[in-house]
Write a protein that binds this DNA or RNA. Sequence first.
DNA 1: AGATGCTCCGACTTTTTG
DNA 2: CAAAAAGTCGGAGCATCT
Length: 285
Amino acid sequence: MPKVFLVKRRNPVAAIRSWDELPDEERADTYIPVSLDCMLHYSTEDYRSESSSSSSESGGGHGDPGGADLCRLGSGSAQEPEPSDHLAPPAAAAPEPGTHEEPGLHLAGKRPTARSKIKFTTGTCNEATVYSCELCGKGFRLQRMLNRHLKCHNQVKRHLCTFCGKGFNDTFDLKRHVRTHTGIRPYKCEICNKAFTQRCSLESHLKKIHGVQQQYAYKQRRDKLYVCEDCGYTGPTQEDLYLHVNSAHPGSAFLKKTSKKLAAILQTKLTSVLQRNAKLSEEDK
DNA sequence: AGATGCTCCGACTTTTTG
DNA sequence: CAAAAAGTCGGAGCATCT
């Protein structure tokens, strides 16, 4: 099966550099507001049959599936996922794929074949409430986790790449993807200067090529890297990045997105720095 | 105030390409 | 086989809604 999601070429039409500047309706006209309907029409079997017959279209779009309506709520011990139940053949009422009018389905590609990697998270929380997915039986401790998981089953994706049109469920996924278009590679190997878009790629490179094993405890947070998605600049702190963007990319969406609280703090620091610099330059005269 | 949604990021993983 | 790209989940912070 050809790899359908690899970015091969840049869409010459897409000239918009920053997707964040787009309103929701433009960056994702395929977005379907939270509603149960779209998912009730979409059984697992439909999903699978579509997957198997999927064209070479890219990952296509998911949309908000409608949250808790699709979950079964129960205790962890009494509510084990029942995959066979969830994977049962589609209800007869289920429409032919593509027959129900789902806005944006024209853009929504077919989901790739179901992956084998299934992580069941219900096993360790017997006493806790578990929200389980009606489609695949996965369980989640938090409803918001289930809600997000449900997006994986949906064909409509909210976040579209302005370069190639590929859709993603998560803004971060889109951000990560866009780096393949912009060429920004924040993670550099200090030994050979080779750069990577993802930290795991760098760590894999370090281990396999240079035999350098990163010493991180399980789930230990690495030093966060603050990346300017406009030019690839990386800074050690958010303040550092803010200062950079403020001076180098005044119109950047990053500045608009920075929360007011944080922006106020950073702006105060920035102002004091500027004042100090001005004072120093005056003293030099 | 609590619930919920959105966003962000790390982490682990798989799949495909060259 | 290494690298690239992507799928997905855990967790957290913030904003908005009820």
